[in-house]
Design a protein around this nucleic acid. Structure first.
Lengths: 336, 336
DNA sequence: TTGTACGCGTTATCAA
DNA sequence: TTGATAACGCGTACAA
């Protein structure tokens, strides 16, 4: 490896002179030329590690994500990436593969790597998490979920659920099937559902059946295929776009028409909802923006600026082809 | 920041003893206990930077990808991630946003970070790339594309194209529309297409029209919507699954039926092709495996083991619902 | 403007 | 088993 010392020797100057050339610039134009030539010739690149060691700054941000192959995660990552580039941070991405143990291990790894801050896209925060986070003493930012005492950015999940619920009721539907995820996920499993239920229950004579499934498309598909023939609902509200796409697939297989037999909606605003037929009504979540905001907030945390413990990102209803006014469906069910 | 020195002082031993505790272990059980206690109490974590500086090893691999929000890229990343964890590497992911300048800048960045190897998922390799790669003198691996003189892992794109072409001809189709991407992409734009054309031209009396589009779904959708009403083809071969999904969407909008009016196929085997209706015939590419193989090969490169310059990954035809035997379609076109 | 000397946190060598 | 010391590559007082 070619070091600053090699350059100094070849150029016949002290290494501090080379260092000055690299950083400040208080240097004569002659020596500048010489050093330039030598660097060009050798292809020298400063060792960021040694630099960080000295400067006590790594310019690195750690990111922990539950999985790599998720549309929402990747949009978040895009935002993180863009904002990080802007602010001069490098991102160390670690994948926890939905495992709590790996999540904890990743926090440790990132701490050892001396990242300046950790941004985590999580499902669930346990006491172990909290303890470890306190121990590492590195600025920590949670996104997508909230936890008392930890800086967080969240989506307005309750509001999103409420919007969909209200919209569905206004369309005239009275009997709903909510296809949700387990409650260990506070944002999606609890808040989003709660918003929906609250909105619907505002109106008398409504009824909501709950079908609990997982985030996985294949599992949702299987569950939907079993349950749909039995339901008397006319509106199916899915907790995520992925689930909605899976349910749509199931209705296709079963020979139902959307929105003829059921109205269908999701949450998220993934690209996928625009490329199926019919396109799926959903709530657009600003995932990319979430990533950008996360880095901005983290930067403030690192530079000790004042930031609120909790930030919320708003979202908006996107009406597509999969929902329509309540009519008696072909199954002959009519709300009475 | 708590360092090895702090631990040493608190434990009343020399820092070299602490270091030994951390690494080898040749240490008395008494001092071991003391050190353990102090580390536990302080939450000390070794500074990976200082360690790397000393060891001249960073255990980091650099990864350059064209964009974050791509299904194939993410599958590759999953494979990379898994294999890297296995071998003890950390991955520094950089996004080039499809820009050549950023790609070059990322190579520099990673070189400065002293990653031990760079894996790049590229579209096109220019002379500038080659020169920079030689200059940095870091093991470099190209995946998805090949370039003379650079280690590469590629898909059997020609063979994949040939498989689809042969399959389409065997179904009885004679008039094809190939929806492709520009030829600057050697793997997809050239090889894949060439395989298809070669297979089709084996049979006399066949004809292929070419529609050139981009990788983007939205652009492909627009182009398809314009061109489909004019085509006389009965089989539409799309260069990627994304394009196929976009074309399917366009056919839906235009009122055509798949596979009634057109047979349709893609390449890639993305999840998305299974969640649209009809499911789309495609060629399954082992993206995850590509990622794993990349890390394995890179590891060999780093440890100076012998590796072939070029490796190829095979793929297989996945027949779904979107293709069927040639019949006169509703537009009344018949090959004569 | 330039050079000397030191320290960043760690590991490895060598004596003790 | 333990401790003192040098070294990794770099930046920076400080002196020249």
């Amino acid at each position: 490896m070619v070091t600053i010392n090699d350059i100094a020797k070849k150029a016949g100057v002290a290494k501090s002179t080379v260092s000055r050339y690299l950083n400040n610039g208080s240097i004569s134009s002659e020596t500048k030329k010489i050093i330039e030539a030598v660097i060009e010739e050798t292809g020298y690149m400063p060792n960021t590690f040694a630099r960080s060691l000295k400067a006590q700054r790594t310019n690195m941000l750690g990111m922990i994500i539950p999985r790599l192959s998720s549309a929402s995660t990747n949009e978040v990552l895009e935002g993180v990436d863009a904002a990080a580039r802007e602010l001069g941070y490098h991102i160390l991405i670690t994948n926890s593969d939905q495992s709590k143990e790996r999540e904890l291990a990743n926090i440790q790894t990132l701490a050892k790597q001396k990242v300046e801050g950790i941004i985590m896209l999580a499902r669930e925060i346990t006491n172990e998490h909290e303890e470890l986070i306190k121990n590492t003493n590195i600025p920590f930012l949670l996104i997508g979920q909230r936890t008392e005492g930890i800086h967080s950015i969240i989506h307005q999940d309750y509001e999103a659920g409420y919007k969909i619920g209200q919209y569905a009721v206004e369309l005239g539907h009275r009997h709903f099937l909510y296809v949700g995820v387990p409650e260990y996920d506070k944002a999606v499993g609890v808040e989003r559902k709660k918003g929906f239920l609250d909105a619907v229950s505002q109106h008398e004579g409504t009824r909501v059946d709950i079908l609990e499934t997982e985030f996985s498309r294949s599992i949702s598909y299987e569950k939907a295929k079993q349950s749909l023939p039995k339901t008397k609902a006319t509106y199916i509200a899915c907790a995520t776009d992925n689930i909605a796409v899976a349910v749509l697939k199931a209705t296709n297989e079963l020979g139902y028409s959307i929105p003829g037999d059921f109205s269908l909606s999701g949450f998220g605003g993934y690209d996928a909802t625009s490329y199926v037929t019919p396109t799926i009504t959903t709530v657009g979540y600003p995932y990319r923006n979430l990533g950008e905001e996360a880095v901005l907030k983290m930067h403030k945390l690192i530079t000790k600026e004042a930031v609120p413990m909790l930030s919320e990102l708003s979202n908006s209803l996107l009406i597509k082809q999969s929902t329509r006014e309540f009519k008696k469906n072909r199954k002959g069910f009519l709300f009475t």
